[in-house]
């Protein structure tokens, strides 16, 4: 700020907050790991988010994905309960993962659910 000089501690914090807001307005890419007030923190596993390294690895293939696709299956229905994407394990398909002790090994055992 050029015209107002922060004098007490609170004024200093207000100025810092204004700077952050201005900076946030200019940024268009924000690290997923950064948390408010520097940036958004979006919970893992939400399919609205583009995860770099999730669809394709650094070579353009799928061998070295930073997150196994099957992980997303679990995050979607554990971290954010989302019965549209995965079976509703809270009420209707309680045993859906019963045969799948380790997602990385057993994910094929997860089957479709027919209501």
């Amino acid at each position: 700020m050029k015209h107002l000089k922060p004098i007490n501690q609170k004024a200093g914090r207000i100025e810092a907050q204004i700077q952050r807001e201005l900076a946030a307005d200019e940024l268009d890419v924000v690290g997923l790991e950064s948390r408010p007030p520097d940036g958004p923190h979006i919970p893992l596993g939400c399919s609205l988010v583009f995860f770099p390294g999730w669809e394709a690895d650094s070579q353009g293939g799928t061998a070295g994905l930073c997150q196994p696709v099957e992980r997303d299956l679990f995050d979607c229905h554990l971290a954010c309960f989302w019965p549209a994407h995965v079976p509703d394990q809270l009420n209707h398909s309680v045993d859906w993962t019963g045969k799948c002790a380790s997602a990385q090994k057993d994910w094929r055992k997860l089957d479709l659910v027919f209501p």
Binding site: H3, L4, P6, I7, N8, K10, A11, I14
Partner: peptide, 15 residues
């Protein structure tokens, strides 16, 4: 003296 934030700012001539 800002209310309710309680920040104290000094004004320059234009402000």
């Amino acid at each position: 003296y800002m209310v309710p934030s309680a920040g104290v700012f000094k004004l320059d001539d234009p402000s």
